[in-house]
Nucleic acid binder design. Structure first.
Length: 324
DNA sequence: CATCAGGGCCCTG
DNA sequence: CAGGGCCCTGAT
């Protein structure tokens, strides 16, 4: 990969998310594997965005509280952004960081819940956050498939190196995702040389679909769940597990919980029932009965709360399940 | 050294 | 609808 692209120009705006909005719990998801396109410290997130043929740098600063949220957003670019271009970026950021979804009812209903209350009180205003474009998210999901975390990181970083770029802004250099067009010309063999294995075919076919305009991400936002599911499932290599993550994390359906993959099942068994392994159906029933309409959001609160705990203290049984 | 499963999915029978 | 194969890696 070439030298970083310098992004000297910048514009800023104060954003007002709908309350409650928890800055750190939305701009950082501790359960996600680390990648070189983002850098987080409490109260500040820096990340990148490939937008309209240009690499952009984004810096988010916390200027509020969960109940009176304010985010100071600075957008860095090579040349100064025109007013309307800047406004469109800010609008995209509102969607990607889920500034407008209303979860006040959820927080109010479950703040005293026996199982969920502690997590709700710690993280009230935490929501699903896409952070990336649909195409980028799919690339991440493909490298997650049938791999341990360490390998997923290696694969994504190799792809950044070969097809992405780096952007320097605000004293940081971060990776930038490649657009589909940057990968369409690559052969399956070339991808395989990056040690992505049989996923090479999947990466190519999804890229082709996006480059060919087969998926309209903007149109899918706000479409009914079934319609989103149908459109995304048509993509080669996207099965039930990836679809379920997508419906929640990328399209913000708070009730999208229909399966619990094996490693999540192990962790949830211990968290909820203090057992090493309970049947998947029992976990699903628990969330359906206790948090109707908010099954996956409730799951998310317990899940991320656990991984935040892992930040502060060592959780031995969890380390064994994560395998880096 | 060999074997195996991993934060799935496709394809076949 | 169940089950084998798939690329590679690190664990055993």
């Amino acid at each position: 990969m070439a030298l970083p692209v310098e992004l000297p120009a910048s514009r800023s705006i104060l954003l007002r998310p709908r309350a409650p909005y928890h800055f750190d719990a939305n701009l950082r998801k501790p359960s996600h594997f680390p990648s070189s396109d983002t850098a987080w410290t409490p109260g500040t997130l820096r990340t990148t965005m490939f937008w309209g043929d240009e690499p952009l740098g984004l810096r988010f600063r916390n200027r509020g509280t969960p109940w009176r949220p304010r985010i100071y957003l600075t957008v860095y670019s090579r040349a100064a952004l025109p007013e309307d271009g800047f406004r469109r970026v800010a609008e995209e950021v509102r969607w990607r960081f889920n500034l407008d979804q209303d979860i006040a009812t959820f927080c109010r209903c479950y703040r005293d819940n026996r199982a969920l209350g502690p997590a709700v009180r710690r993280w009230r205003g935490m929501k699903p956050v896409a952070a990336n474009s649909l195409y980028e998210t799919l690339m991440v999901y493909v490298v997650l498939q049938n791999a341990v975390v360490r390998r997923s990181i290696q694969m994504l970083e190799a792809l950044f190196q070969r097809f992405g770029s780096r952007a320097a802004f605000d004293g940081h250099a971060l990776s930038v995702f490649w657009p589909p067009e940057a990968l369409v010309a690559a052969s399956e063999e070339e991808l395989r040389s990056l040690k992505v294995g049989y996923r090479a075919r999947t990466l190519k076919r999804i890229t082709d679909a996006f480059a060919g305009g087969e998926i309209d991400e903007i149109a899918l936002r706000g479409a009914p769940k079934e319609e989103v599911a149908q459109a995304v499932s048509r993509l080669y290599g996207i099965g039930p597990a990836s679809l379920e993550y997508l419906l929640f994390e990328d399209f913000y359906f708070l009730d999208a919980l229909t399966m619990v993959p094996p490693w999540e099942r192990k962790i949830m068994s211990r968290l909820l029932f203090h057992r090493t392994l309970v049947p998947e159906a029992r976990i699903l029933r628990f969330f359906r009965e206790c948090f109707p309409g908010y099954e996956k959001l409730a799951f998310h609160y317990m899940w991320e709360d656990l991984f935040w705990r892992r930040d502060r203290e060592r959780v031995d049984w969890l380390e064994r399940e994560i395998r880096r």
